[in-house]
Simulated assay, not measured.
Amino acid sequence: MSAPVFQPVFLLCSERSGSNLFIRLLDSHPVFCGPPPSHLIRTLALNLTRLGDVAQDEKAWQRLLDISARVMQHQLGIWQCSLDATALARRVTERSVRGVISAIYTAEAHAQNKTRSVIKENRIHIFLPFLMQAFPDARYVWVVRDPRDMALSWKRSSNHPGDVRRGTQIWLQDQERFRQIFGYLAPAGQIMRLRYEDILQEPVPTLTALCDFLQVTYDPAMLNFHDKEDTKANAARIANWENLAKPLIGGNTGKFHEALTREEIAYIETACATEMHAHDYTLTEEPGERKAAEQAMELRYGQEDLALQWRALTPEEQAIREGRQNVIDYINALPIRLAT
C-alpha cells in the first residue's frame, strides 16, 4: 500500500503579522498540527543544488538526513517529536527532499494525533516554485496585517533587526510577492486571503470561512488555543510569543496611532499605499502631507544604516540561533552541483 499523500497548508505572512497566532488557532483544531516554525523547508529548498543526487548517491542522502536532523535540533519552539538521522531514515517513504519534509511533519502530526499539517515558513515567495512542484495539492492561506501595526511590532521586537523602515520594507516586499502568488493560485481555488484584524475582531465567522476553505468543520476549540500546554510552554520560552498564552485580544489593532510618530506613519503610508488600498486599509494623511512628513523623516535619518543588529536576546535563544546558523554555514560551504 502506498503512503498517504502529504497535503500541507502553507501560511503566507510577514513576520510580526500574526503568523504564530494563526498557527496556534489551527493547531487547536482536532485535524491540524501546527508546530512552531522550523524553517527546514526554506533551508533545504534554497540549497537543492548543494545537496547532490540524494536519490542515487548514498553519501548525499546521508548528508541530507544529517542536515535535516541538525536543523530540527535547533528550534526556537518546542516540538513533540524528535528525530535523529537514523530515526528519520526509517520514517521516510520517498528518498528525496520532499520525502524528508513529509516524514518530519507527518511524524509530528502523528505525535499529536492529528492528520494534517499547517506550516509557517518566512518569505515563502522565495521558494514557491519548489513548493508548487513538490506539493501540488497544498493549500495556501495569506494573512495580512496593517503595515503600520506590523512595523510598530517590528520596532518593538527584541529579535528582529532594524527599525520601522526595515519592517516597512519587509511588509512591502512580501505583500507584492504574495499578491502575485494569489494571482497564480486563486483560479485553482488553492489560496485564501485573511486580514489579521478580522481574525481578532470577528473570529468565529472568519475562522468558519477558513475551515470551509480547508474543507473541515469549524471547531470552537480553536479559540481556546491559549489553554494548550504546548502553547503555554512556547509562550514562556520566547518573548515575542508571550501573547499566545492569552485569549484573542480584539482591540489589539490600530496601536500605531499613539505609538508611532507622524513621520514614521507617513513613511509607511507613502511606501505601502498601493498595497494598503488593495487590503482596504485607510490612510491617515493626504498625499501632500504624507510627502512632507516622509521628507522630514528622511532628513532625520538620512542614509543612516537601518540598525540591522540583533537587540537583546536571551542566552538560550542566542545559542539556538547560533546552532542553526552553524548548520546553514555548513550547507553554504558545500559545492554547487549543476549537472543533470
Rank of each mutant, 00 (worst) to 15 (best):
P205M: 01
P205W: 03
P205H: 00
P205E: 04
T206W: 11
T206F: 06
T206V: 11
T206M: 03
T206S: 13
L207A: 02
L207E: 01
L207D: 15
L207N: 08
T208A: 13
T208E: 11
A209I: 00
A209K: 10
A209N: 09
L210F: 02
L210Y: 07
L210R: 04
C211I: 04
D212I: 00
D212N: 09
F213D: 08
L214Q: 10
L214Y: 15
Q215A: 09
Q215T: 10
V216H: 05
T217E: 13
T217Q: 12
T217H: 15
T217W: 00
T217S: 15
Y218M: 00
Y218K: 00
Y218C: 00
D219I: 01
D219V: 04
P220Q: 05
A221R: 13
A221M: 10
A221E: 15
A221P: 07
M222Q: 08
M222K: 07
M222F: 05
L223G: 08
L223I: 12
N224A: 10
N224W: 02
N224V: 05
N224Q: 04
N224S: 01
F225R: 06
F225K: 08
F225T: 03
H226P: 08
D227A: 09
K228V: 04
E229I: 06
E229N: 05
E229H: 04
D230N: 14
D230W: 07
T231E: 07
T231Y: 01
K232M: 00
K232G: 07
A233H: 02
A233E: 09
A233L: 13
N234K: 01
N234D: 10
N234V: 05
N234I: 08
A235E: 10
A236K: 14
A236T: 06
A236M: 12
R237S: 10
R237A: 03
R237T: 04
I238K: 08
I238L: 01
I238N: 11
A239N: 09
W241E: 11
W241Y: 06
E242T: 09
N243G: 06
N243M: 15
N243T: 14
L244I: 04
L244S: 05
L244C: 06
A245V: 02
A245P: 05
A245W: 03
A245Y: 10
K246Y: 01
K246S: 14
K246D: 05
G250W: 05
G251V: 11
G251Q: 08
G251T: 07
G251A: 06
N252E: 13
N252K: 11
N252C: 05
T253Q: 02
T253D: 03
G254M: 04
G254C: 04
K255F: 12
K255C: 08
K255N: 13
F256L: 03
H257C: 02
H257Y: 11
E258Q: 12
L260R: 09
L260V: 15
L260M: 08
T261V: 12
T261S: 14
T261F: 13
E263K: 06
E264G: 02
E264P: 09
E264V: 00
E264A: 06
I265W: 14
I265L: 11
I265Y: 15
